[in-house]
Design a binder for these strands. Structure first.
Lengths: 308, 308
DNA sequence: TTGTAAGCGTTATCAT
DNA sequence: ATGATAACGCTTACAA
């Protein structure tokens, strides 16, 4: 249309106080122009967005979807089961959302398979389902872990305590596998501890690790910064010197670790980029529902600070 | 309707694979059944939900609105000006949302007055506009500050450094006023520092405070835990003993301070309750648009730990 | 370029 | 209790 006409129409619309009715527009075009962000409510006493992982991805996803004229609506999920898959499916079938970003799934969750079978546009963030052909966005810590190990070797560390994450989650398993692979060229003395991502866990494991320090130079590599922060707390209470007595490395690069001393060496999870990528992938499956989409992997970054 | 009929209908619906079309339902009933949560994007390099204040209120608001069959959609706002007020008004006029939760406003913002004038259902969280008759939800730290001062007095503190928040915000001003009132019965030696809520600020102010410690027993009261955590960092770096050398009290009760040593004495901001209350208030103005709504104030709680 | 009409899938109303 | 019909305000298609 000629821009003169457009302008004239806008003038009149303004004068008449006209506002388009989005509800009617949505019904007519059979699209909600909304994306659903499904988050788990499984952390007792702690809302999903108090976990920086979910809130940072949300932040990025909100910005990215606004740039594409979509809104983001939040859908809390009670548990990660087939009833949850039903609820998610309904959100699309009842036209409340055009597609879903699903995060916080446990390994072996029935959700991705179900959604795919039902032809729902969706993208999984932070979990790589066993089934193939599922659109998903993950991060790969491989390069960062290699750099960490090189640094530990250079600094003559000999023993590494590896505290895993909650093995119910893909990230924890993936991280462990990659860590194990990366160890091959070295001959570190490795001791594994099963963790659960909680601060209390880092605190609880601390005495055993600290009391058994031998002659070898030792380092603790935590699956996330949160556990590392619990360990820091124990060390502060007991006047244990980091990295003098032993080194510590975390994972995630959480903001709050900037309050800790010494500065925590860590692996930065590219959450903002994951959020942007999730919307990007989802948009593709909304626009071309049948197309196969390749999993997206975003490289993590090694952040060398003074705790090793 | 008789439950037998309902059941029969549900059976048939199931068999036919029927899913109600919410877009049509919304158009017909002229309601979106959505609440907009407006958050500022004014913190450079940091999404709104990386700030625990916004994310905790979101968590609670999501749960509360789900209980009332409403969804929450996120609307990021560039700045807190009249253009922002226009955008918010449009969200309701175009029927994208039935009402708005507006947070992160600065003092003297034109937004509340404008929304009221336009008859938009809304609720302000964390700011008390100068105009009266604005529905809003705030917290009041009065009782908690009284308990803090009583405790400081009991422990023979004589001097208090008060580091304010960013005075562009209502909370910071209100906190300062209440603090000043609460001081009256005591004769503490008070020194005020203008802060800005940032961790860097707590760190930056530390040397001056620490180097000038006199004979009197001193305490620093920070307007938020974030600044206090920067101060802790400085003290850890410089081996300054808390509370031996000086006491520290924060405000907010942020989760991450549990990683700090010693445990931070603080004032717990009732964010979850604020989020629930915000939805409650908003629902009332959606259902009865003309009704005057009283401002809601929720009492904060003094959390005594070992940093004083 | 402008105008007219059908259709989206509900809700609401009014008859039966 | 059930059925028929208008209305919601847009999009799309086709006609003038």
């Amino acid at each position: 249309l000629p821009s003169a006409t457009i302008e004239r129409i806008e003038k009149i619309a303004e004068k008449l106080g006209y506002h388009p009715n989005m509800l009617a527009r949505r019904l007519a075009s059979n699209k909600s122009f909304q994306i659903g962000y499904a988050v788990p409510l499984t952390f007792p006493g702690r809302g999903a967005f108090q976990i920086p992982y979910f809130s940072m991805i949300l932040d990025a996803a909100v910005i990215e979807s606004f740039a594409r004229s979509y809104n983001i609506a939040i859908y809390p999920l009670g548990d990660d089961s087939s009833s949850c898959a039903d609820k998610l499916t309904d959100l699309v079938k009842t036209k409340q959302v055009d597609g879903l970003i699903v995060s916080g799934l446990k390994r072996g969750s029935p959700v991705p398979g179900f959604l795919k079978k039902e032809g729902i546009p969706f993208v999984i963030v932070g979990s790589l389902p066993e089934i193939s052909g599922i659109p998903c966005v993950n991060y790969s810590p491989g390069k960062a872990i290699k750099r960490l190990l090189a640094e530990l070797s250079r600094k003559s560390y000999r023993k590494i305590h590896f505290v895993t994450g909650d093995m119910n989650y893909y990230d924890a398993v993936n991280q462990k596998e990659i860590f194990t692979e990366c160890l091959v060229p070295y001959n570190f003395n490795v001791r594994e501890h099963v963790g659960d991502y909680s601060r209390a866990c880092g605190y609880r494991l601390a005495p055993e690790i600290v009391e058994n320090i031998g002659k070898e130079k030792e380092c603790v590599f935590f699956a996330n910064d949160r556990m590392a922060s619990g360990f820091f707390r124990y060390c502060a209470e007991n006047r244990i010197n980091i990295p003098g007595t032993l080194g510590v490395c975390g994972c995630d690069d959480e903001d709050y670790t900037k309050a800790l001393y010494p500065s925590l060496t860590t692996i930065r999870q590219p959450r903002a980029r994951m959020g942007h990528a999730a919307v990007d992938v989802l948009m593709k499956s909304i626009e071309k529902p049948s197309s196969e989409i390749n999993p997206v992997e975003i490289e993590a970054q090694f952040i060398l600070n003074s705790s090793i």
